[in-house]
Amino acid sequence: MVETGTSDDADEARGLRKVIHVDMDAFFASVEQRDEPELRGKAVAVGGDGPRGVVAAASYEARKFGVRSAMASVTARRLCPQLIFRRPRFDVYGRVSRQIREIFVDYTPLVEPLSLDEAYLDVTEDLKGIGSAIRIAQLIRARIKAETALTASAGVSYNKFLAKLASDQNKPDGLCVIRPGEGAQFVARLPVRRFHGIGPRGAEKMAMLGIETGADLASCDIHFLREHFGSQADYLYRAARGIDLRRVQANRARKSLGAERTLERDISSGPVLREVLERIIDITWERIGKAGAHGRTVTLKLKHADFSGLTRARSLDEPVSSRAMLAAVSHGLLDEVLPLAQPVRLVGLTLSALDEDSMPPDATAQRQVELPF
């Protein structure tokens, strides 16, 4: 276990909230390794092992070979011939997730799940009166390990953006703390690829503009960012300074579920786009299954090489009830835009008009308070 910044001194620092981001380590694959001891220490992927299969999760042993989630299974097998596949068991993952959630709510009612394997917790006022976000994160990780035989990594900070960055810093089985006043400095030394929402092509575009790190991004004024990154500019401007205005939202309803892929190269070929779309349909359908969601509106998103985009949507009279139904609607939407006027760099698919809504509202103001961290 690796921990950084965990000395819990009595100094009071100016901050906003006490936020923990807990992220289970290779959750699906780790559950499979836990339940099948012979898989421990081996390269394991959860997903379909067919020509159209997609990796939903990979063990750390598999990741050493370059195997990643959302990768085509045939590619994963080529990178790691000894890879062992297991079909997803979402009922089991759901039970373990609920067990972990019960641990969270022992400490705070403000729990915002992002998926089965990660969540934000606001412990500014914790139920046990512990007073230290760092100590609470340590206790939660210890309980998860004792009660589920799984490991979790955690990030502790004063907003959601920084807490999520921190939880990824010392994976697996790590804890990282970014104290009030340290956010901008922490972000400055990170490669921009670590920022949520910046994919390989976005990082490549930034590199062409001389932007490699958070410090480089912070040196750009808002007008420059809006000129080159459009609607993403305000997010980039705040992120480069360690600012996040969102609050932890407990029991949020979900507006949509979906997936998108930034392509390794720009594509205009209809048959190739259909192959890409099939993989995205697989990922989207798995996420729908995990969430137990029901929705009626399917939206296809394409982003061109020049970052312009287009969307096509279709609303149905009844909820999407099968993968085949989702695929038929999705390919129908793609038919509407083929042939393409220019190549695309990103393909995305979402299901919306759900029974529940989980997208966080954008906070418009933040209040600074004195908090011992």
Rank of each mutant, 00 (worst) to 15 (best):
G48W: 07
G292E: 01
T297M: 09
G131M: 12
N251W: 10
L209V: 01
M206K: 08
V329A: 12
V22S: 01
V96G: 03
S268A: 15
A184D: 08
A259K: 04
Y107F: 15
A57F: 11
R95C: 02
Q82G: 08
V55E: 04
R86F: 10
K160E: 00
K42M: 00
R238H: 14
R261Y: 11
K303C: 04
A305D: 02
R141L: 00
Q82M: 05
A62D: 06
R86L: 08
V44N: 02
G41Q: 03
R241Q: 06
T6I: 14
R238G: 08
L326N: 07
L165E: 00
D126H: 02
E356N: 14
L139E: 07
V31H: 01
V329Y: 10
F65I: 06
R77W: 08
M71K: 08
E318I: 12
L225E: 05
I222G: 02
S330F: 12
A250P: 14
A259W: 02
T297H: 07
V54A: 10
I144G: 04
T299N: 01
L346M: 04
R238K: 14
V156Y: 06
T6K: 05
T311P: 01
F224Q: 03
A166K: 06
L338N: 06
P343N: 00
F186L: 05
K164G: 04
F224R: 07
F195N: 05
V44A: 03
Q185R: 14
S322W: 10
D306E: 09
I134F: 04
A327H: 11
R40G: 11
R179Y: 06
I198W: 03
R296P: 09
V92K: 15
L217I: 12
S73F: 12
P113D: 00
P271A: 00
S321P: 05
G258S: 13
G183F: 06
